[in-house]
Structures are given as structure tokens and as C-alpha cells.
Design a protein around this nucleic acid. Structure first.
Length: 296
DNA sequence: CTATGGCCCTGGTTGC
DNA sequence: TGCAACCAGGGCCATA
């Protein structure tokens, strides 16, 4: 389940191989992957073939390819989407293939090897790809980038203040903050010592500062380690795994002792999502236990 | 606004 | 052993 750190890793890996390349051809083997123009592989192909990729970026969990005519390709990996430069052994789960050409002859001292294809694999078929002339307007619907300087404790406070609902579903809402998914929402709440069912508008200023620092700290650490490979769902474009899985404190750790207090980690359901907590470090009623936050 | 539940999907796990 | 039921998960949508 690629979230912000995994998508950041993918984008960094792809950038040197894609920027400057021309899309020579596209094959769509599962048309529902194409979200815009809606399930229309033909118009999608017609729109991108011959275009040069001028920039590879990320916004929230979206991979953002800027084309030389002002259009953008947006790719959401959802649960099981993968972007790879070398074909996986079996062609199973292959949904879209981009054939790549060079914009100009390569210098012979080369540098990066040139790949001929970019493959989009997606076992569960939840991934989607958009072609749009107005990426900026689409992306404006997302909340702030949690690692950008605009994302301050004050900004977080404003976004939580009006909400009476539980904290965790809010953190997963991409219009509130862009890029958090189930793994990092659970990890951030643990690090902040906050219960996922706490009503968002009941946080003290100190708790908001702690949550802000936890979100940034958890994401930065995961980016540094190139994401979390859990269930083998996330693999980098070159085939390597992420290294953050060893750093998980609560996600997928049910039954194991809390790294901070030894209490067994529990799995509960919040907002319909599996949620992992330390019941002692993340009390629902405000007591001393979570005061300092659970990280470091 | 908030909560809940369904839908899209597959493949691994569980239950009989 | 074989097969059916169930579940996870991100985002979106409908309903209450």
C-alpha cells in the first residue's frame, strides 16, 4: 500500500529514467485503469503518444508526470499498484505498458542505462491513471503536503479544530492532509501518544504540536529508509524492497510487546479500518500515560 | 458535518 | 482434499 514515503521513493527512482524521455507507445490491457478519459484507452493513448515527459513529481500519494504540451499523467497506486522499469517474470497483473524512446541520441559516456518500457502492474486493479490538462486544479483538492514548510502545527490545529470526529479517519482523509495511509497514520498516532478515537477538536495545543512532530518524524524516517515493504505489496521500480518495516512500532504488531512499555499491541477497528495501538501509551481519556508521546 | 456501509478486486486464510 | 466464505485495503459514493 504505497503511501507518501513509498511514492516519494518511486518518484525518486523513476526520475532519472523518465525525465526527457518520449512516450513512443502505450498498451492498456485493463481499460478500467484509465480514469480520465474515463475507461477510454484509445483516447488516453492518442493523448500521450509522442509526448515528452518533462518532469516527474509527487503530490500526496499521486505520481505526477508532466508532459511537454502542458498535460499531466497522474498515477494512483492504491493498494497494489507498482511501477517498474523491468518486466516482472510473469505478465500477470500487467495493466499498462508505456514504451519509451529517447528524445535525442545518447552521449556514449551514457550514465544511467536506458530502459525501453515503464510497466504498471496492479494485482487488485484498484490503481488508476488520469490524463488531464488541469492537474493543478485536481491536486488543489488535496490537503497540505505534510513534509512541506507550509504544514505547521498552526495549520494542523486549524484543520482539526472544526472536526468533532475521530482523529484517525481525519488523518486518512486526503483533503485534510495529503499522503497518509493506514500504516503511517497508526505510527504517527502511536508516536504522539494519542488514541485514534480521540475527537479531533479536543486536542490540547501541546498534543497538536506532538501530533505534528510525529507525522513529520514518521514520514521523514520512512522516506529515508525508502518506504515500508509489508506483505510484499510495495517494491521499488528496480525491484528492491523498502527498509522501514523494521521500524514499525504498532502497524502489524498486534500481540507483540510495545517497544516503549511492553504492553501487548492491540488491533481495533476505527472508521472501518484496522488500527493498531498500544492501549497504555495511547489512552483515550487524557491521563498521564501519553503525555510525552511515545517516540524516543 | 459525521457515521456507516457498500463497492471495486484479488489472493491468502479460515472453516467445514 | 476441496471448496466456499471471508477479509484487507484506498478512495469514493450513497444513505441516514
Amino acid at each position: 500500500m504505497p503511501e507518501l514515503p513509498e511514492v516519494e521513493t518511486i518518484v525518486g527512482d523513476l526520475r532519472p529514467h523518465l525525465e526527457g524521455r518520449v512516450i513512443a507507445d502505450v498498451q492498456v490491457s485493463w481499460p478500467r485503469t484509465i480514469a480520465e478519459p474515463v475507461e477510454d484507452a484509445g483516447r488516453f493513448c492518442a493523448g500521450v503518444v509522442g509526448r515528452q515527459i518533462v518532469r516527474v513529481g509527487r503530490r500526496g500519494k499521486l505520481v505526477w508526470l508532466c508532459l511537454d504540451d502542458g498535460q499531466s499523467i497522474l498515477i494512483h497506486l492504491r493498494m497494489s499498484g507498482r511501477l517498474v522499469l523491468q518486466p516482472v517474470q510473469s505478465g500477470r497483473h500487467l495493466r499498462v505498458t508505456f514504451a519509451l524512446a529517447s528524445a535525442r541520441a545518447l552521449p556514449d559516456d551514457g550514465g544511467e542505462p536506458e530502459y525501453d518500457y515503464l510497466y504498471f502492474y496492479d494485482q487488485r486493479k484498484f490503481g488508476r491513471i488520469w490524463l488531464t490538462t488541469d492537474a493543478v486544479r485536481m491536486l488543489a483538492l488535496l490537503g497540505p503536503e505534510p513534509l512541506a514548510s507550509e504544514f505547521t502545527p498552526g495549520e494542523l490545529a486549524v484543520r482539526l479544530a472544526k472536526r468533532r470526529g475521530a482523529l484517525k479517519p481525519l488523518l486518512l482523509n486526503q483533503r485534510v492532509i495529503a499522503g497518509l495511509g493506514n500504516i503511517y497514520a497508526d505510527e504517527a498516532l502511536f508516536c504522539a501518544g494519542l488514541h485514534p478515537r480521540r475527537a479531533a477538536n479536543t486536542l490540547s495545543e501541546q498534543e497538536i504540536v506532538r501530533l505534528h512532530a510525529a507525522i513529520q518524524g514518521v514520514l521523514q524516517q520512512a522516506v529515508r529508509l525508502h518506504g515500508t515493504t509489508f506483505d510484499g505489496l510495495f517494491v521499488r521500480p528496480g525491484g528492491e524492497e523498502g527498509r522501514h518495516q523494521e521500524g514499525l512500532r504498532v502497524y502489524g504488531q498486534a500481540g507483540l510487546p510495545c517497544t516503549r512499555c511492553g504492553t501487548p499491541i492491540e488491533r481495533i477497528v476505527v472508521g472501518g479500518r484496522g488500527t493498531h495501538i498500544c492501549p497504555r501509551c495511547q489512552p483515550l481519556t487524557r491521563e498521564r500515560a501519553g503525555k510525552q508521546g511515545a517516540c524516543r
